[in-house]
Nucleic acid binder design. Structure first.
Lengths: 327, 327
DNA sequence: CTGTTAGCGCGTTCAC
DNA sequence: GTGAACGCGCTAACAG
């Protein structure tokens, strides 16, 4: 492996000069600068990042901990984050906590040990409930999940409003018995539940709610169980996430129920498949690319200005009406 | 930040002893061992990974470079890899090259600079074509893409066989004009093309092939263009990947073509949505979890035994016949 | 503008 | 079984 001293020798300068050229700080004459750069190229020298990090205490690595890598919502957000990072020459350490607080803790510890510049995290409910800013030695931005009382930088959807508007849309379609399947393990699920309940309360209707694990399989199961236990099928079934929505649609098919004729369907996240099923599906779309981009920019701002006030950035969902809730 | 010297002072021993306890090498009396461990816990000490890496030259970080993070195939594979890594206490640095050779190079360089223990990569065609084992300073395992002449550890599907079996299935359904839409940018696409062609040759039929970018949007476009240019619709359309398959189904819907009545549809990758569309879709499924698990195990074996012979592990696809190719 | 020097925090010889 | 001392490769402070 070629080290900085090799470059220095080759260029006929000291290691300090080479370092200055590489880091771009301090002043170096144009002539020696070019000589150094030539030597770097000639020897194919690459600084050891571990050494650099140890010495300078700085990193250009960001951490990203998502709660489910298989959820297209998170891959879209990740991609947006990585695009920005790549454009700035930064690295992203992407980890999948899998909705498991232990795994989340493991990766959070790892981020600290790696001395990353900052972390973007979609927290488990467990972490959110006992969140204290002092527990984190690095700048942290929350995405997707955050409640009003949490004192942290965050980028989230206006979940209550979004769920409320989605539910109102179904009420306008004359649905009275609207069953809401939501992920009970996340703050997002409960907030969307609250929005749903608010809309029903406005209409003076009673809620039908079913907590599920935020997976397609569990949602399908839950719907099956529900349908088998109740003689009367609901007017509409609503999912608090794209993965759950997929489970509901699978479940309806299994039970031979057609939509929108037998039951209306709607949910969150404008996933590709919602457009190609027949009929296509009404969804509350999230601006995933915006969310990712905003999150990393918020993080970089926090890194640059550690003292600035906490900001919670709330995005508005977009209702996309399709065949599954056709009049 | 608490350092190893703090722990040493707290436990009343030297830094060397603390290090020995932590690394688990050299001999330490049980009594002092426990005392050190108690101090570590009391001070909440965590070794600085950068320093450790610099000194020891070793890492327990693995790199994973996928070519498209939004492709469910890769997220499934990633998850399997990360599960194994997590179980062994290792980290995974996951990056998204986005089918871009420049980005791929950037991340590969980064892996080298980070001194990762090894890398799992789904290479671009560009990299594969000029692949030389000597170019990589770290153990490397290829996934999803690799041709027979590449001298590298790899885990891939038997693409030729898989495409051939899928095509034969369509021939058995009496399809004669079978259009094959394939990702031209990857080795995988061309191999599947070869399998398709082989099956057609067996039957004495001529091929209809359409290279596309491996994205849903491009596939939809390509199908539209094809349909508009040719009066006669093909008997069947086949996609060389799940993303392309989605584009074909979208395109058929746009053009008001029903399947399997107007045209039969099939493709690769058993994605969740292929089960819920009506009719559901015949696919060649890949054992994604197995592929991921095998890849990381192959990498770990290579790290442990740098001298062992290169291995290419070829997996068999599973044909899942569904409604889109119903008789 | 440039070179010399001192650590960053840790693992690892070598003595004891 | 344990401690002292060195150096991994690099950056930053200080001289010149």
């Amino acid at each position: 492996m070629t080290r900085i001293s090799d470059v220095a020798k080759h260029a006929g300068v000291s290691v300090a000069t080479v370092s200055r050229v590489l880091v771009g700080q301090g002043s170096v004459s144009e002539a020696t600068r070019e000589r150094v750069l030539a030597s770097v190229k000639a020897l194919d020298y690459h600084p050891d990042l571990a050494a650099r990090r140890l010495r300078s205490g700085k990193t250009d690595t960001l951490g990203l901990i998502v709660s489910d890598i298989r959820n297209p919502y998170f891959t879209e957000v990740s991609r947006a984050i990585e695009d920005v990072a790549y454009a700035r020459g930064m690295r992203v350490l992407l980890c999948n906590a899998d909705e498991d607080p232990a795994k989340e803790r493991f990766y959070l510890d790892m981020m600290r040990d790696e001395n990353v510049a900052g972390v973007i995290l979609s927290p488990t409910l467990s972490l959110l409930n006992q969140y204290r800013a002092e527990d984190f030695s690095f700048p942290l931005v929350l995405v997707d999940r955050c409640d009003a009382k949490t004192e942290a930088d965050a980028v989230v959807l206006d979940n209550i409003d979004a769920a409320q508007r989605l539910t109102r849309h179904l009420l306008e379609r004359n649905c009275r018995r609207i069953a809401f399947f939501y992920g009970a393990a996340s703050a997002t699920g409960s907030q969307r539940l609250a929005g749903y309940q608010a809309a029903l309360a406005e209409a003076g209707l009673s809620a039908i709610t079913q907590p599920v694990k935020p997976t397609t399989d569990d949602a399908r199961q839950a719907l099956s169980t529900y349908l088998e236990r109740h003689r009367q099928t609901p007017d509409a079934v609503v999912a608090s996430s794209g993965l759950i929505l997929l489970g509901l649609v699978e479940g309806l098919r299994q039970h031979g129920l057609r939509y929108p004729q037998d039951v209306i369907v709607a949910g969150f996240d404008d996933m590709p498949w919602t457009r190609i099923v027949t009929p296509d599906i009404t969804v509350m779309a999230q601006p995933t690319a915006d969310i990712g981009r905003t999150a990393i920019e918020l993080l970089l701002a926090r890194i640059a200005q550690p003292g600035q006030a906490m900001r919670r950035i709330v995005m508005r969902g977009e209702l996309i009406v399709r065949g599954s809730s056709a009049a």
